[in-house]
Each structure stands twice: as structure tokens, then as C-alpha cells.
């Protein structure tokens, strides 16, 4: 059954554990990665929104990539960036309307959420279950099949 990553801002306390988990998961050569998820103020008191890639169906990042470095992984449904192919033109960073394709200045590369290959660390470590990754509760007919 297809799993779905879901975000419930009403459960988020803004503790930023997701950011830490993401950063450590993407450590390369001892350099912690830049988080792909950001707990951002939601505009109301005590309201935080963990903003991360929505893995759009008709994604602007994929459309903007002139060298086809961004491809959807049919297993997880996540749009993954192939670092070996990326030419760092920053088209996807500029094109994403949700600001979820980013530059990691430390590791000198473009990054985006890849759902950790099918086991997102942010969801695993979220203490309030504001982030979850589980079999979809919505009726199959209501979800567009990814990929």
C-alpha cells in the first residue's frame, strides 16, 4: 500500500526536532546537511507549520530542470535529485513555489526532500506526531497515484 507523508500543523510545537533529524540524516563527510524541512511560524499564536517538499504531481522543479536531474522515485513517490547530474544552475531553487528546493552552502550542492528513501527521519523523530508517514487513510480513488 502506498504510504503518505502528512503534516498536521495543529500538532506542531515548533520544537524543530524535524530540522535536526533531517540535518543529521544528510550528513556527508562529517558535515551536517542543511535541513530540507523548516518549522515556520504559521501567522497565529502557537501555530507552527513544518514546511517541506510536497512532492507535487506537476512539479515546477522537475519542469525547470534542463538536464533531467530531478526524477520521481516510483517506489516512494518522492522527487529525487541526482547529484551526479545536477549542474547547479539553481533553476529548481528559483522555480519551486513553496521554496522547498534549497542550496546547501556547506556541502556546496542543491538539495530537496527525498523522503529519506522511504523512511523519513523527521516523521520518525517528531515527538507530537505532527509529521507522519504511514499508509494513506484517504480512499485510493481520491489520491492521484504518484509517478
Amino acid at each position: 500500500m502506498k504510504k503518505q507523508f502528512s503534516v498536521d500543523p495543529n500538532l506542531c510545537t515548533g520544537c524543530r526536532t524535524c530540522e535536526l533529524a533531517c540535518s543529521f540524516t544528510h550528513t556527508v563527510d562529517g558535515k551536517a546537511g542543511r535541513p530540507r524541512i523548516y518549522a515556520t511560524p504559521g501567522g497565529f499564536e502557537d501555530l507552527w507549520v513544518p514546511v517541506t517538499c510536497l512532492q507535487c504531481d506537476d512539479a515546477a522543479c522537475v519542469k525547470s530542470c534542463l538536464v533531467d536531474a530531478l526524477k520521481r522515485n516510483p517506489e516512494t513517490g518522492a522527487i529525487e535529485l541526482n547529484e551526479a547530474v545536477c549542474v547547479k544552475c539553481m533553476a529548481c531553487v528559483a522555480a519551486c513555489p513553496f521554496g522547498c528546493a534549497l542550496v546547501d552552502p556547506e556541502q556546496d550542492k542543491v538539495i530537496k526532500c527525498d523522503l529519506c528513501g522511504g523512511d523519513p527521519a523527521c516523521a520518525r523523530f517528531c515527538p507530537t506526531k505532527a509529521l507522519t508517514y504511514k499508509p494513506s487513510e484517504l480512499k485510493a480513488s481520491k489520491i492521484k497515484v504518484l509517478g
Binding site: 515556520t40 504559521g42 501567522g43 497565529f44 501555530l47 519551486c96 521554496g99 528546493a101
Partner: peptide, 29 residues
Amino acid sequence: TRNIPADYFEVCDECHRKATALTMGKISQ
């Protein structure tokens, strides 16, 4: 060439995230 709305390029990634949070925040409220 790629059919991306020109206004997507008017805001930087960080401000895009802030705007996304505010939109989702409204729905949650």
C-alpha cells in the same frame, strides 16, 4: 520553454517558505 509561471521567480526560496507557512497556517487556524 518550460511553461513555468513567471511570478514563481519573483520571490526567493525563504520567502516562499514563509508564505507557504502562512497559507497552511490559515487553514489550520
